[in-house]
Computed example of a mutant assay.
Amino acid sequence: MYAIIQKFHSGWAYIALLVLVIAVVNAILGMASKKEFTAKDRKIALFGLIVTHIQLLIGLVLYFVSPLGLASLGQMSDKSLRLTSLEHPFVVIIAIILITIGWSKHKKLTTDESKFKTFSIFYGLGLVLILSRLPWSLWF
């Protein structure tokens, strides 16, 4: 079971990162070009929100069944175990909270520029945090 969940988490991560990058780039381009915020822009941001939340759910399941997750939490002297058991989950949860806040805040805004700016900031910070704590050694 662990191997299947781990492969799914790793594979879905590529999709989540791609959609999140697309959402951030779309928001930055929309803000820079002062274009109208359309349903397409909203859907791109919504897909970013959905795929990151799915990735979080898969990751939480993996955290409890993986030997690199909760089971290795007491071994903080090993850098790779500290990354997978503490740093990666904690920082990714913060990143997804920021992405969720960005989604929620955009609904209350009225101007197109402020919506793009909100997505640029919150989704962008979430993306940077996620990229900063990925276990790159397990990817390549």
Rank of each mutant, 00 (worst) to 15 (best):
S66C: 11
K105P: 00
A32P: 00
I50T: 07
H53F: 09
K43C: 01
K107W: 00
H106N: 03
H9F: 04
V21W: 11
S33C: 09
Y63N: 07
I58G: 01
L46Y: 08
A71F: 08
V24C: 09
V25Y: 05
E113K: 14
V21H: 11
K79A: 15
S114Q: 14
F37L: 08
V24W: 06
S80N: 07
R42P: 01
E36P: 02
R82D: 01
L68K: 12
S104V: 10
E113W: 01
G11R: 06
H106G: 00
L98T: 09
R42I: 06
L81V: 02
M31D: 03
D78V: 14
S114V: 04
L70C: 03
V91L: 15
I44K: 03
T84Q: 11
I50V: 15
H106T: 02
I28F: 12
E36N: 14
T111M: 06
G69F: 10
S66P: 05
V65R: 04
I97K: 04
H106E: 12
L98N: 10
K35R: 15
T38S: 13
L62W: 13
E113H: 07
G30E: 12
K79I: 12
L20Y: 04
F47V: 13
I22E: 07
A23R: 03
V92F: 10
K43M: 11
S10G: 15
I15Y: 01
P89W: 06
K40G: 08
L60A: 10
L29A: 13
G30M: 11
I58F: 02
L73A: 13
L109F: 04
G48I: 01
L60N: 03
K34G: 10
G11K: 07
L46T: 11
L57T: 04
K115A: 11
L60S: 03
S10T: 14
F37K: 11
E113D: 08
L18W: 04
W103E: 05
I94S: 12
T38G: 02
G30H: 11
G102E: 04
L73K: 05
S10F: 12
A39W: 04
V19P: 00
F47I: 13
G102H: 05
H106P: 00
A13Y: 03
A71S: 13
I96Q: 08
G48P: 01
N26I: 03
S85Q: 04
A71P: 02
I22P: 02
A95L: 10
G102N: 08
L83W: 01
G59N: 06
A13G: 14
L17P: 00
F47D: 11
T110L: 10
R42Q: 15
